[in-house]
Amino acid sequence: MLYAFLDTKRSHFKLHVELSISNELVVLYGPSGSGKTTILNAIAGIQKPDNGKIQINNRIVFDTGKVHVPPQSRKVGYVFQDYALFPHMSVEKNVYYGVPKKQQSTFNQHINQLMSSLKVDHLRQQYPDQISGGEKQRIALVRALATKPDVLLLDEPFSALDHASRKQGQEEILRLRKEWGIPFLLVTHDHNEAIKLADRFIYIDKGKVV
């Protein structure tokens, strides 16, 4: 379960939203610059809202002036728009980055399974600049899920992909959503994508739910 109430000033508008998401795939849909990424960043703990309350399962991770759990301890998986794969590390090192060294053996089976189900097993020794856009997107997904997060955030995960990879990516998200049973919050400005993926979709414009 994910609950977020955010009230924060942006340069062009005021962001004022309240979201409550159970174990479903919710699409945040709206034009560029409407505050969608800000919402994801606030949930992940990267940006601090002026006012608000964020709760993940039974943990309050942000409450104005009282609680601010740093992003390290929020257990939020985040797939960034440009994937943010570490360019100086192999795919394998990227994927294992968040796994504590002592616990690697306990995570091995989980990560191997993820990598083979997303068909990136053969890329372990490659570097991000040696692989295609679709592969990068799938590795970013594996990496975000590797640490077994309580919530998965996806910021325009398909915007840089061609039609075929985009379609494949969307199928995979739908499959993972069923398998994982955690809140998925996906940002897009593509109407068709929003309709195809969403259990429920929220239209955001100029910082407000419309």
């Binding site: 960043n41 992940a44 703990g45 990267i46 740093p70 992003p71 390290q72 301890s73 929020r74 939020v76 998986g77 985040y78 960034f80 440009d82 943010a84 570490f86 360019p87 980055y97 968040g98 504590p100 990496r143 975000a144 590797a146 640490t147």
Partner: peptide
Amino acid sequence: NLEHAAYTMGA
């Protein structure tokens, strides 16, 4: 975002 990604993974 590279640093942000690392933080969200618990680093």
